[in-house]
Design a protein around this nucleic acid. Structure first.
Length: 426
RNA sequence: CGGGGCGUCGUAUACCGGUAGUACGCUUGCUUUGGGAGCAAGAUGACCCAGUCCGAUUCUGGGCGCCCCGACCA
């Protein structure tokens, strides 16, 4: 991609109404646009990073047997009435609308109901279980207060996987696998070192659930971290003695921290299968309710968490795994035709080698190009200038840490991670 | 939903009961070219509706919107 044709330009200052660091940086660098409170658009750069995050999650979900599908956002009230979640007094975050022909419709804030309902057509025997459908799908939540930039929005894409198992034993086995997959996702996205599997309240479904909480000052949650086991306890269950009996965590050694909930996994049990009549015939021929779980991650929140945590005074710092491009090729020709030609050649060669390159071919001064490059946070900057032309090697600067080397084109191509390494660097 | 704050070119800000200035960005030209250049010439703005007033961007009321704190977050 040529930066001269890039959809967005960077800006020096963030809008005054935007206080959170994640939104300030993402807006300044041209990754997102704010549509209204709690509603953000993904612009080309932001969409690239978003898609990288989605790609990581998809790989890990597929690896544990997930099957991707896509359900509608439009929700039939009848199904929700069966689980008693249609009433605004029971669920206050509904966006509701109506059909021209009459009749109410909801915009989904989650998908347990329609999916469980749909599974009745797919599941009839113990042989059909377990099964793990998931999707990346838009959720609508009528939050009374959107806040913290992209952290809490009214419309967002969620990866939601639902597990359908024969019984609690089979469920627990998968639940552990899902937890491992989640750990891998956050490691690959660069948040591994600061993300803790956290014991939390199970809400209305079960006694406990697990959240994946990334330690961060900008977080909304308070957790208590056990550094030895890399586990944590959410404040909401901190005073429950049973938590410590179950987990073996020593309450006395915990340290308090603010954190962002980047993922959660729930045991749902038979609450939805009971209400909606999702059963299977077991080996004895008896109708048995399906045992369920749900597993959520918001890719945009994950992206915002990375922006919040892995940035510095100059701007964003993306891990290679989620960066919008692998290389930021910066041409400092100052109008010199030889340098321009050389930069074009490098752009061609890198692209041909499968490297994703943002090529700053703009007629701008060095200072502006470097400042923009720092702001956007692409992991590796490759500079082509009269200096590098004379040397026969290109200047390569790592965005994280600023380590600088000089390499020939072939050395450069050989050494590039090409977005696949995904090493955690927190 | 309770409390507080705020709405001025694309962005950030200033001033004012007599129709608005600056910086960045944008357009044109010349110079400049390794860390957000210089000069010159331009274009672009008062959230909406009422009221008071000779006159409202400014004051009053209402609406809408945005931010922050709290509550909520299945």
């Amino acid at each position: 991609m040529r930066q001269s044709q890039l959809f967005t330009k960077t800006r020096r200052e963030a809008p005054s109404d935007e206080v959170s660091k994640n939104a300030q940086l993402l807006i300044r660098a041209g990754f997102v646009h704010k549509e209204m409170a709690g509603v953000y658009d993904l612009l080309p750069l932001g969409l690239r990073t978003f898609n990288k995050v989605v790609g990581i999650i998809r790989e890990e979900m597929n690896a544990i047997g997930g099957q991707e599908l896509h359900l509608s956002a439009l929700q039939d009230p009848a199904v929700w009435q069966k689980t008693d979640r249609w009433d605004d007094k029971k669920v206050d975050s509904w966006f509701k609308t109506e059909l021209k022909t009459g009749g109410a419709l909801g915009l989904g804030f989650t998908h347990e109901e329609p999916l469980t309902n749909l599974m009745r057509e797919q599941v009839s025997s113990w042989r059909d279980l377990p099964t793990y459908p998931y999707q990346f799908q838009t959720k609508f939540r009528n939050e009374t207060r959107a806040k913290s930039g992209l952290m809490r929005t009214r419309e967002f894409v969620m990866k939601d996987l639902y597990s359908f198992s024969t019984n609690s034993t089979q469920h627990v086995e998968f639940y552990a696998k899902a937890a491992d997959a989640y750990k891998k996702i956050f490691e690959r996205a660069g948040l591994g070192g600061k993300t803790y599997m956290t014991f939390a309240s199970g809400g209305s479904f079960s006694k406990y659930s697990h959240e994946f909480q990334t330690e961060c000052e900008a977080g909304e949650d308070i957790i208590y971290i056990d550094d030895a086991s890399k586990m944590a306890v959410n404040k909401e269950v901190y005073d429950d003695p049973e938590v410590y009996k179950t987990t073996g965590i020593n309450k006395a050694t915990l340290r308090e921290a603010k954190a962002i909930e980047v993922g959660n996994i729930f045991t749902l049990g038979t609450r939805f299968s009971d209400a909606l009549g999702l059963t299977y015939k077991n080996k004895e021929g008896t109708d048995t309710p399906v045992f369920m779980g749900s597993y959520g991650i918001g890719p945009a929140r994950l992206m915002a968490t990375v922006a919040e945590l892995l940035s510095d005074a100059k701007g964003l710092v993306w891990p290679a795994s989620v960066a919008p491009f692998d290389v930021h090729l910066v041409e400092l020709s100052g109008g010199n035709e030889d340098v321009k030609k050389e930069a074009e050649e490098v752009y061609r060669e890198l692209t041909a080698a499968g490297v994703e390159v943002l090529f700053d071919d703009r007629d701008a001064r060095a200072g502006e190009k470097f400042a923009d490059s720092d702001l956007m946070g692409i992991p590796l900057r490759v500079v082509v200038s009269q200096k590098t032309l004379a040397e026969g090697k290109f200047e390569c600067v790592e965005r994280h840490g600023g380590h600088t080397t000089h390499k020939t084109l072939s050395e450069l191509i050989t050494d590039l991670p090409r977005g696949k390494a995904g090493l955690s660097h927190v």
